[in-house]
């Protein structure tokens, strides 16, 4: 379980593409310097999006032949930051700039039981873990949740391979994942304290699971998750950042992050992980018009609710649930950038 956070760049050639599910594209890359990608790893790609080079992270679904073939699964997100549209346009023969496998979501060894929870496209981070657990002969459960069956990548294959270890929840079939029941069942089992959960999915799902996990007093270190900061409470929309100290306002397009927009505007800000984990790009919030969609995992729930600060790399301003799509005024956030 080497935790490899070293990032080196190489070229990868697209060798195969196909549709995995509605709106989900399979992209198989052949890297220049193949390294086996362990379960839980992702690769970062440098994509040229409308003239700006952006880094995007994609879980490695499958690593074959010592890493000579790495399979990614990419969901086309209408409100994404542009990366998925680019990825869906790739064809065999195209070359991308990519890192070697980066591990920040390693599958542990030695737990009595493993529960993998995939929400939507989050399944891409868990396919290889489920395979590894099956090979080990471990006790594991794979929970797959999605809005509609047609958009759930790998569903058929996983059910076939993992049989009754898979539990499928589909919103529009009214078989919804009940987080309280799932976590309650773990908490009530004899292996409760020695159960590890690995989850990847929309941040609302992960927040709900985390709250249930904490309320059952399950050991927090046993709850593992990965987020690339790409999902929030609301769909991404355009908003405005006011920077009174610099006497500037910057518009953030729905395809761009606040951090990207500030950098593009020449504002020098400090950052590190760019996925809402480390807190380096945390700044104080002076005022909000609308709501803050935090999207990070650095601030605690309580900190998020106070609107006192946000992480520039993933947070967005949004008009909130009652927003009129045609309302003229975008949401805005005023930040303290000393």
């Amino acid at each position: 379980m080497a935790v490899n956070t070293q990032t080196w760049w190489q070229q990868g050639r697209v060798v195969e593409t196909s549709d995995l599910a509605e709106g989900v594209r399979r992209v198989v890359l052949a890297p220049d310097r193949p390294v086996h990608a362990a379960p839980g790893t992702h690769v970062d790609l440098r994509l040229d999006l409308a003239g700006h080079v952006r880094k995007r992270s994609y879980s490695v679904v499958r690593s074959e032949d010592g890493g000579r073939r790495l399979t990614l699964g990419v969901q086309l997100a209408p409100s994404s930051r542009g990366g998925s549209r680019h990825m869906h346009g790739l064809a065999p023969g195209d070359v991308v700039e990519m890192t070697g496998p980066v591990q920040s979501f390693p599958l542990g060894v030695g737990a009595d039981r493993y529960v993998l929870v995939a929400g939507g496209i989050g399944v891409t981070a868990l396919v290889a873990m489920a395979d590894a657990l099956r090979r080990r002969g471990a006790d594991y459960t794979l929970v797959l949740a999605g809005r509609r069956r047609a958009v759930m990548a790998y569903l058929g294959e996983l059910v076939e391979v993992h049989g009754d270890r898979v539990r499928v929840f589909v919103d529009d079939e009214d078989v919804r994942l009940d987080v309280a029941e799932l976590v309650g069942e773990i908490a009530g089992s004899p292996a409760a304290a020695r159960t590890e959960m690995y989850m990847c999915g929309p941040i609302r799902l992960m927040d709900a699971i985390r709250r249930a996990w904490v309320s059952h007093e399950l050991p927090e270190p046993n709850l593992r998750f990965e987020t690339f900061g790409s999902s929030g409470a609301w769909a991404a929309e355009d908003f405005v950042v006011h920077l009174p100290q610099l006497d500037r306002s910057v518009r953030v397009g729905k395809d761009s992050s606040m951090l990207d927009a500030l950098e593009d505007a020449g504002v020098d800000v400090m950052w590190d992980c760019r996925k809402g984990e480390c807190g380096i790009c945390q700044v104080k919030v002076l005022d909000v018009s609308g709501r803050i969609d935090h999207r990070d995992v650095f601030l605690s729930q309580q900190q998020k609710e106070t609107y006192a600060s946000l992480c520039l790399c993933v947070a967005r301003a949004a008009r909130g649930d009652s927003a009129d799509a045609d309302a003229a005024e975008p949401a805005a956030v005023t930040l303290h950038l000393p």
Partner: peptide, 22 residues
Amino acid sequence: AGRCTSMPAQETINPSAIVPSY
């Protein structure tokens, strides 16, 4: 298991904070 259980000066723990456990 190598999972971080405590970090200074923040209320959460970075999800990637793990060292390999052999």
